[in-house]
Design a binder for these strands. Structure first.
Lengths: 214, 214
DNA sequence: GCAAAAACAATCATGATTGTCTTTAATATT
DNA sequence: AATATTAAAGACAATCATGATTGTTTTTGC
């Protein structure tokens, strides 16, 4: 699957109220979830079409009936992963509590989950896989833009000092994602998680301009 | 190559002063370097034996003469990568200047290089490849232990407050490696590198106990 | 020089993955 | 009820990576 050229999106079968044929959608979902599971279990490179079909509990023939090739399935899985990320993100940021502490913990929870694992598998694979990068990078960019915009909304009074605001965001992103990735690769001392999170929060608070400090 | 079980080390041909047969060592080196190049160029999963042989400019048969199988070659490549890292590390830490600024920049330089890229490829692959993890994790651990020990040597007067010392180290590791990895995966805004590095330095200085502050 | 050993090259058989094609079962339409 | 459509399964040929085997050329030791 890894090396498969990835084509454009499949023409959605028009949202007529197809009755039983809508269970085809269930099968597609099953396949997409199986693909994500395989990425998490075996890594991107070993997420092969036989493995995915096996994980989904169906034949490879059935699978290729719903997705014309492995690349199309992978593309759909990436779209779903992206949606998952955005959903989790909206849920976190949409909370009524906008304290730094809450937000840091929420994002940490988010990237501690397996969705982030899958995403990083894809992200690193895309380093050396151009066709994969072509569909993944836009998703990454969109996520980052939304992250940034959301942060602006959450801290409007911080916008006078853009430099420090940007620093707080970049710091958060790199510290948290750095920890998450190091955890994936036997590189994180779990005992240091709490101290680092606390320090990050302290640091963000310190970067807030006086007008924004509660 | 990815899925190959990795055996124990090859019996070194005894350090007698073999004359021309020592050019065998050159070929082995060539193969090991080719393997590392392939990991960087194509990623771990696509570092196959034909590609490596091609990169080294020799036949696959010749390659398998020097390394009994793909796994043995990969193991040797990992050992070499580990050595490279340790060498670069010693060079950085062995400098006479022990300022925080210098050390942060030195480690940043180090993980900005391709050796770190290769290492992260392996590290992530080892998440789902047990036999790879078996040879990579010890190297990772050794590197971390040396890192820690070196830091203790560089900042002896900091040892009274171990909690803050450990925090400074963990923070440095996660921020710097986080940035390096995000850079690999289209996730780093290069404009933020300098501000983050400066902030990290400031932060480390702030964590130093009064007795250690110059 | 000559024989043994090592370096190197080429080929083979095997297993895995991929996409296509064919066949059967289920479901929907008229 | 008959037929067309879709889901699902299986078989197929092509490609590729792997390790083993065999053959050829150098190099080394006697």
């Amino acid at each position: 699957m890894a090396r498969t050229a990835i084509k454009t999106a499949k023409p959605v079968p028009a949202p007529e109220l197809n009755l039983q044929a809508a269970k085809s959608a269930a099968t597609r979902t099953r396949l997409i979830e199986a693909t994500i599971s395989c990425i998490i279990k075996y890594g991107y490179a070993r997420t092969t079409t036989p493995r995915v079909a096996d994980e989904a509990g169906m034949s490879r023939g059935a699978m290729l009936h719903h997705f014309e090739n492995g690349g199309a399935l992978m593309q759909a899985a990436i779209a779903e992963l992206h949606e998952k990320r955005l959903r989790a993100f909206r849920q976190s940021a949409g909370s009524t509590i906008h304290e730094v502490h809450t937000l840091v913990r929420a994002y940490w929870q988010q990237i501690s989950g397996q969705t982030f694992t899958a995403f990083h598998e894809l992200a690193l694979a895309s380093r050396t896989d151009e066709s994969l990068a072509n569909i993944l990078v836009p998703a990454q960019n969109e996520f980052r833009v939304r992250w940034y915009r959301q942060a602006i909304e959450l801290f409007p009074e911080w916008q006078d000092d853009r430099a420090r605001f940007d620093l707080a965001l970049a710091l958060s992103q790199n510290v948290l994602e750095g920890m998450a990735i190091n955890r994936l690769t036997h590189g994180l001392d779990e005992r240091m998680v709490e101290p680092i999170l606390n320090d990050l929060e302290r640091q963000i608070e310190a970067l807030k301009p006086p007008s924004a400090k509660a």
